[in-house]
């Protein structure tokens, strides 16, 4: 099994709305996989199906060779998930959150202590062990969330917009941790609206209106579409799907898509 994730014809309907429409993709092991798309394109819905939080309407998905639909509980032990909305207990301290998740994932008391200290070091949370999660700054909150998702050393971590709303320094710090994990062999599945972050991924996948537009390494996409940046590629796909590229000025699209172009200070 060379793929961490294999998705086949995965579909999710909310009433009449098809949020995810028969998507297919696979994520090789050990790769940093960028999942891109404008707001409401179905990224979070896809992720939540992969994690077993919601059930697909149709299609299948396997994670580490395990069928998500058939053995959702078994899958859970081998993935770490960071939700788009901060999901840790903000009335508990850094240490307590880490220990809680470590214990939930079945680590023994000795392992828990060791793992807790490792994560605190890795996420640069030294000195903040006794801070309530609520009082942490955005950057530290996200690092703690990453730490909790990685506390049981899963083979795959799924991050839903982990850097949304962070300042450039915090973003870089966050990505440094992600890279360390990737170098350690962990597969990373990440969504982002920052194109500089996307360019740093091994492979990117574009989803729009619940459908996959393209899947390739970022450089390849830029070359193939004969454009300068990944952002241009992104916009091209969105306009292509709309069918009337001329009618909509590029600027207006940027607004609609909610791009934070200014923030992306290179990588």
């Amino acid at each position: 099994m060379n793929n961490a994730i294999v998705v086949k014809n995965l579909t999710k309907k909310f009433g009449t709305l098809t949020a995810v429409d028969r998507i297919n993709f696979s994520v090789p092991r050990g790769c940093v996989y960028g999942f891109l798309g404008p707001n409401g394109s179905g990224k979070s819905t896809t992720i939540r199906m992969l994690c077993g939080i919601i059930r697909p309407t149709a299609g299948s998905a396997t994670i580490m060779g395990i069928d998500v639909l058939k053995e959702p509980e078994k899958v859970k032990q081998s993935i770490g998930y960071m939700s788009q909305k901060f999901g840790l207990y903000d009335d508990m301290t850094v240490k307590e959150n880490l220990e809680f998740y470590a214990e939930i994932y079945g680590l023994s008391p000795a392992e828990r202590k060791k793992r807790r200290d490792e994560i605190i070091g890795m996420a640069g949370l030294e000195g903040k062990e006794r801070c309530l999660a609520r009082t942490l700054s955005g950057g530290f909150k996200q690092r703690l969330a990453l730490g909790c998702a990685f506390v049981h050393a899963p083979g795959l971590i799924i991050l839903d917009e982990p850097t949304a709303g962070l300042d450039p320094v915090s973003r870089r710090a966050f990505w440094q941790i992600v890279r360390t994990l990737a170098e350690g062999g962990t597969t990373v599945f990440v969504t982002t609206h920052y194109m500089d972050e996307a360019e740093g991924c091994d492979t990117t996948c574009f989803i729009f209106n619940g459908r996959i537009m393209a899947q390739a390494p970022p450089e390849e996409l830029i070359r193939k579409e004969k454009l300068k940046t990944l952002e241009d590629v992104f916009i091209k796909y969105v306009e292509m799907d709309q069918g009337t590229p001329e009618a909509n000025s590029r600027k207006r699209w940027l607004e609609i898509l909610g791009f934070r172009r200014r923030n992306g200070g290179g990588r």
């Binding site: 994690c51 509980e73 859970k76 993935i79 999901g87 840790l88 939930i104 994932y105 909790c148």
Partner: peptide, 14 residues
């Protein structure tokens, strides 16, 4: 309401 359940569901908790 706080969204912590989502993180909890993804763990092997029964």
């Amino acid at each position: 309401e706080k969204g912590t359940i989502e993180q909890l569901i993804v763990t092997p908790i029964r």
